[in-house]
Design a protein around this nucleic acid. Structure first.
Length: 218
DNA sequence: CCAGACGTTGTT
DNA sequence: GTCTGG
DNA sequence: CCAGACGTTGTT
DNA sequence: GTCTGG
């Protein structure tokens, strides 16, 4: 579909969000989105695929905060990302037309040359996603688009960031929102502590320089 | 995304 | 190297 | 026609 | 469900 293929690819090697953080309090989400909450909210500095996470979705015009597994259940495969360019393929079409969601995160991680970076834009980012629901079990994939200029220093792809969730959850397929982020991102190099999915805690988002100083002064 | 396992037989 | 787990 | 696949990232 | 491969 022309509208989506215009997102394009640039062919450059690099990555996408395979890890994120969510350490804001739920009260910020409640204030900002006023959803009906049907999941036990948890904080994490190191959210990995295959974990259950709170996601926002619209059901009959009601905004719900539901628990879903990161990794879209397609039967055989469980993609954690869905390329925007493929949203009109049979595999994703129905989900994009009728099962859109956003994932509230504090930031997401990207690695370059073995070094992790934490990327934020304000206190919350809402990442565009599609989900399936099979026997009451929800699962989602985060949509990826081409990196914007800021991001392209680090990686060729980036997660889709949704700024207008009313439009995202609107009646018409929100093709116009499927594009690289046009706002400003903040990048923080962090400790490789975040590398292991078993590690959690504030150290994951601590700037690497601060970590070094604390190590130095012991 | 990164880390960690990566087999077989038989079965308290 | 490739697959699974988180 | 039926069977089988159906994804993404990166490849230091 | 739907597309591709044979």
């Amino acid at each position: 579909m022309a509208r989506l293929t215009s997102v394009g690819t640039n062919g450059r090697a690099d990555i996408m969000c395979g890890r994120f953080s969510r350490w804001i309090g739920i009260e910020i989400l409640l204030e900002r989105f006023r959803p009906i909450v049907e999941v036990e909210y948890t904080k994490s500095y190191n959210v990995a695929p295959r974990t259950i996470n709170p996601v926002l979705r619209s059901s009959d015009g009601v905004l719900l905060l539901s628990g879903m597994e990161w990794g879209l259940d397609l039967g055989k495969n469980r993609p954690i990302n869905a390329r925007a360019e493929n949203l009109d393929t049979p595999m994703y079409r129905d989900a994009f037309l009728s099962r859109r969601a956003v994932v509230p995160v504090s930031g997401f991680y990207e690695w370059k040359d073995g070094r992790p970076y934490h990327i934020t834009a304000g206190d919350i980012m809402t990442l565009g996603a599609i989900y399936n629901e099979i026997n009451g079990h929800g699962s989602f994939a985060i949509i990826t688009v081409e990196a914007n200029d800021q991001m392209s220093d680090l990686h060729s792809r980036m997660p889709l960031i949704i700024e207008n969730i009313e439009q995202w959850f609107g009646e018409h397929p929100p093709y116009q929102l499927v594009r690289p982020f046009d706002g400003s991102l903040d990048f923080t190099e962090v400790s490789t502590y975040v590398n292991s999915p078993r590690n959690d805690g504030e150290e994951c988002i601590r700037p690497v320089s601060q970590t070094s100083l604390e190590d130095f002064f012991g």
